[in-house]
Design a binder for these strands. Sequence first.
DNA 1: TTTCCTATACCGTCCAGCCGGTACAGTAAG
DNA 2: CTTACTGTACCGGCTGGACGGTATAGGAAA
Lengths: 175, 175
Amino acid sequence: MSTRERIIDSAMAIVRDQGVTKLTLDEAAKVAGISKGGVLYHFKSKDDLIRGMVQRLIEQCDQLNHEHYQRQPEGVYRWARTLVHACFDPNGPAFDPVGGALLAAVTVNPDLVAPIQAMYDRWMERIKSDSPDLERAGLICTAMDGVYFQRLMGINLSDAEGAERLKRHALDLLK
Amino acid sequence: MSTRERIIDSAMAIVRDQGVTKLTLDEAAKVAGISKGGVLYHFKSKDDLIRGMVQRLIEQCDQLNHEHYQRQPEGVYRWARTLVHACFDPNGPAFDPVGGALLAAVTVNPDLVAPIQAMYDRWMERIKSDSPDLERAGLICTAMDGVYFQRLMGINLSDAEGAERLKRHALDLLK
DNA sequence: TTTCCTATACCGTCCAGCCGGTACAGTAAG
DNA sequence: CTTACTGTACCGGCTGGACGGTATAGGAAA
């Protein structure tokens, strides 16, 4: 794996394990096993590093969505179903909150969220394209955001089995 | 209004207007019109200040919920309906992101979210008490979290009228 | 030799927390 | 009444450390 990728991994791990405020160039370098100079060679500023993290997050989300899309049977609500499955995929970025990048971005510089907004817009287009009842699909997608939000914040509205039931219920509504 | 309350107000305003990273004791003091020493007299540390902000947020949420609960007609899903109305109340803490306190808490010290978790637990108890279909109520509450999340992050899944339709759709499901 | 990558040393700034003070009550003895 | 004392609220300077960013040199591979 390239050094650049290792640095992003490290930054993600820091945000996940220690919190956003502990994400410093020094710490990222230490975790990645190189010096601060090395980090600053690959990312010309801290903002740039966060941009890289957000980029990574988006790529992982897109890839996961495409994987699940392929696996979903054709028919109405295919994209919405995809989103639900992706949201609950234990190996996806929705778990193991790689999405700490989001928090880091919002915290340090709200402008860095722009690419995420673009990702949302893309999703919304897809949802629109194959959802007979847009209100219903929208509600469920928003609920998926809620799930993600709770995980990010470390808040639990329901336990593990509750989450499983939520997922099934959402999918039931998309038949 | 007491100085202590004024300081919390100022801290909230800073998070809202300038971002979490700009929340410093100096700045809070400046906005509140007192000195840093004064701030530290009322809050013995920055964490303590944030605790105060979170506390305030919770009180506002609880109060808003009780107001809306009174206004809701009796019957099933009364608490769930309350939550939806509170979430879309333009004068509630869900708008005018006082909830920056949440972000501040998670950012600076994840432990400070604990009171929020307790608030969620209280809500969940209430929802359980009067919802015939718990899965349905849970899905909708989670969607409300999603709405809040999007507002916090400055992300829009849908526009203003889309939000209004979402609200109506949620309430239709709770009849 | 040139290019790519990494290490070391350093600078300026910012910030949390500390602390010695001030102002101003109230209050109680003399 | 007045003096002496006490507690509350607040001020503002200081310090030690952390952090972002720069400059520059070392070294390996091609």
